[in-house]
Structures are given as structure tokens and as C-alpha cells.
Computed example of a mutant assay.
Amino acid sequence: MISGLILGLLLVLTLLGGVFLPKSALAAVESKVTSPPSAEVYTAVDQLLNSLPRDYYTVMQVKQLKNKLKKRDNVVLVDVREPSEYDSGHIPGAINIPVRSLTKNLAKIPTDKPVILYCSSGHRTAIGMTALRLLGYTNVRSFPPSINGWKAAGEPLEK
């Protein structure tokens, strides 16, 4: 039986063309899936896709994010880029939890208040959101404009 986490991550990584996984690692995950996929696999994928909230990308604009951040104690902003990227400039108030270390840092990600993830372009954010969603987080959203959209809007960065 394929776990939801493996299936979900496989789905995201396949959609992203294995951008963040070496081919050998992607092949190892893909080997867990029977070929052709069983009815169980189709059902699991369908459940995953149907469990995504209708407002999956609720924070679509810089202005929306700024409004949410004004209520600082209500939102946790997570930069899922690598530490060197974070150190070069991040959205003020963001904490850095690289996407590769999300599962090791779940204690920093609350379940009782809104959490917004961002990266450079949205790819790592999608991976992080999918992983957290599969782990039961229903309060996580993304900021698709990411840091590039924030900078393009002329907003300040914190170092």
C-alpha cells in the first residue's frame, strides 16, 4: 500500500519534473507506484486533489499579504528558501524553514493560526504546502507572487 505522503510528494515532484530531486531519488519514489496504477492509487490521488481547499492560493497579491501581516500575532510567515537566500533578503518578519527541513521543524509551524509559505518562484512553496497538507495541516496557504513579486512591488526586504 502506498502512503499518502509518498503519493502526494510523487505527484508534486512529477508535476515539477523532478526539479528538486536527483533522478535516482525520483526513480526510487516512482518504484513504489505499481504500473499501471491500481484503483487504490487513483482513489488516493483523487482524495488528495479533492482535499485541496478551494482557496488553495488565497494570498494572491502583495496587498493581501501586507494586510494579513498587519495582524502579526495571527499569521506565521515561512520562507522555505535555503538559508543563504533568506539571509540575502526576506519579507520582514518571516522565519526561515527550508523546504527540505519542514518535517524536522514541525514544532515551529502552528496548527492553530494561519501559516503562509513563500519561496522565490512558487515551486518549493507548492512542495511544502503539499507535504504539510498531507501531514494534516489545513491552515497553510501560499503566497504565489513569492519573494520576486514582493520585490517587484517595491516592498522592503529584511536582512
Results as ranks from 00 to 15, higher is better:
residue 2 I to Y: 07
residue 2 I to G: 03
residue 2 I to D: 12
residue 5 L to T: 10
residue 5 L to R: 05
residue 6 I to D: 09
residue 7 L to K: 01
residue 8 G to C: 03
residue 11 L to I: 13
residue 11 L to T: 12
residue 12 V to L: 10
residue 12 V to K: 03
residue 13 L to D: 11
residue 13 L to H: 09
residue 14 T to W: 02
residue 15 L to T: 13
residue 17 G to N: 14
residue 17 G to Y: 06
residue 18 G to A: 08
residue 20 F to C: 02
residue 22 P to F: 12
residue 23 K to I: 05
residue 25 A to Q: 15
residue 26 L to K: 08
residue 26 L to C: 12
residue 26 L to F: 15
residue 28 A to Y: 09
residue 30 E to Q: 13
residue 31 S to M: 14
residue 31 S to C: 12
residue 33 V to N: 03
residue 34 T to D: 14
residue 36 P to K: 12
residue 38 S to W: 14
residue 38 S to F: 14
residue 40 E to N: 13
residue 40 E to R: 09
residue 43 T to G: 12
residue 44 A to L: 11
residue 46 D to C: 07
residue 49 L to A: 10
residue 49 L to E: 08
residue 50 N to T: 12
residue 52 L to N: 11
residue 55 D to R: 07
residue 57 Y to M: 07
residue 58 T to H: 08
residue 60 M to G: 14
residue 61 Q to Y: 05
residue 61 Q to T: 14
residue 62 V to D: 03
residue 63 K to I: 04
residue 63 K to R: 14
residue 64 Q to E: 13
residue 65 L to T: 02
residue 67 N to G: 01
residue 70 K to M: 11
residue 72 R to A: 15
residue 73 D to C: 01
residue 75 V to N: 06
residue 76 V to N: 00
residue 82 E to W: 00
residue 84 S to L: 06
residue 86 Y to W: 15
residue 92 P to Q: 04
residue 94 A to V: 09
residue 95 I to M: 11
residue 96 N to F: 05
residue 96 N to E: 07
residue 99 V to E: 02
residue 101 S to V: 10
residue 105 N to G: 06
residue 107 A to N: 13
residue 109 I to D: 00
residue 111 T to W: 11
residue 111 T to A: 06
residue 111 T to D: 10
residue 111 T to G: 11
residue 113 K to P: 00
residue 118 Y to A: 07
residue 119 C to Q: 04
residue 119 C to I: 10
residue 121 S to K: 01
residue 121 S to V: 03
residue 122 G to T: 06
residue 122 G to K: 05
residue 123 H to R: 08
residue 123 H to W: 09
residue 128 G to P: 03
residue 130 T to D: 01
residue 132 L to D: 04
residue 133 R to T: 13
residue 133 R to K: 12
residue 140 V to K: 03
residue 141 R to D: 03
residue 141 R to T: 09
residue 142 S to W: 03
residue 143 F to G: 01
residue 143 F to V: 01
residue 148 N to H: 14
residue 149 G to N: 10
residue 149 G to I: 04
residue 151 K to M: 15
residue 151 K to N: 04
residue 156 P to C: 06
residue 156 P to S: 14
residue 157 L to A: 11
residue 158 E to H: 02
